[in-house]
Write a protein that binds this DNA or RNA. Structure first.
Lengths: 179, 179
DNA sequence: CGAACATTGTCAAGGCTTTGACGTTCAACC
DNA sequence: GGTTGAACGTCAAAGCCTTGACAATGTTCG
């Protein structure tokens, strides 16, 4: 994504500068809304980049690495038993095509199994193999260590507030997600 | 024309289910940290997807569309005058290669200009053309209308809190990363 | 029952990104 | 001054995701 010095002061300070500059030029722009969206984007970008980098050090086999989306799919399957591919896509927020491709990869490494459903012969049931379950446990624990590192900068109360505000922000919206 | 259907409930509800399920299975996982990161990801994903879709309806010419990153680069150049490509990359959070490719596109449409710097002949100075400035004003106003739609879900005080919490989350991390 | 329509998973095409390598240009230092 | 090292922008390769199309299967309803 960006160079190792992603935390360059400019990257974060730019939000203030941009909001000020744009709202001086364009009167119809709402500075508050702009700052909110921009801050949300930058925060998530930074966090994603860091956690992804930490995850990059986790190896599956000698040849394969567990990608960010791979871990997401494992999480979905671990949390909600065997599922049809369509459901996995909906829960993970990816398109069916993306899940299809990622599962191909995970199945080749023996982490997930695919079985044709007997009730509906169009669908495929995905489930975690014991090896997949074990791998998920190991990798997610490591991933969560990174999450804890970030979360530790806020107090428990602040974390609760942040989650609450984000949840409220989302709940009101009617968003048409991927097909 | 499709009637606005509520976001798939599963996508958002899954956070609760996953946090509960995982923390029951893996004792070393911190549920609070997991919920925080997961909520942040999902909120930003949803918001990005929606704003990107709204932006998709904005046309540059008959042939070209303004991409999400195109708008970001225009914003950087509009807010902070002419800049070297390297600086644009740092401010926008993209790699130099990505900026290079995107600028190629914008320059072909006459929105930004490239001029070799006279002080340092390795660098290229990027600047907005008058047409680029005009296009940015029009497109960003439309984009911000979407941002306002989202921001309106929260009160002014809540928006301030959210920005403050996100900023704190990041700032502390910056310090750690730089050390 | 049969016909029209919807849904599922997959494939192909295209877009966007990152990393690593390269030639060019500048900076530092003996 | 000349050599060594660094930085800039670009290119090629690879990865990941999306959309749109498709065959196969289910569903609805006249």
């Amino acid at each position: 994504m960006r160079e190792p010095e992603a935390a360059e002061p400019d990257y974060w300070t730019f939000v203030d500068h941009a909001v000020r500059s744009v709202s001086e030029t364009l009167p119809e722009v709402d500075p508050d809304a702009m700052r909110l969206v921009m801050t949300l984007h930058r925060a998530t970008d930074l966090l994603s980049y860091d956690l992804h980098a930490r995850l990059g050090e986790i190896r599956l086999n000698e040849s394969a690495q567990l990608s960010s989306t791979g871990l997401r799919l494992l999480l979905v399957l671990s949390a909600s038993g065997p599922l049809e591919l369509r459901r996995v896509a909906a829960l993970s927020g990816m398109s069916r095509a993306a899940v299809s491709a990622a599962v191909e990869n995970l199945a080749a490494n023996g982490l997930v199994g695919k079985e044709p459903s007997q009730e509906d012969r169009r669908t495929v049931l995905l489930h975690l193999t014991p090896e997949g379950q074990e791998t998920f446990a190991r990798c997610f624990a490591a991933y969560n260590a990174g999450e804890q590192h970030w979360a530790a900068t806020l107090t428990a109360e602040e974390r609760g507030q942040l989650v609450g505000l984000l949840t409220k922000l989302m709940q009101t919206q009617d968003v048409q997600r991927r097909a």
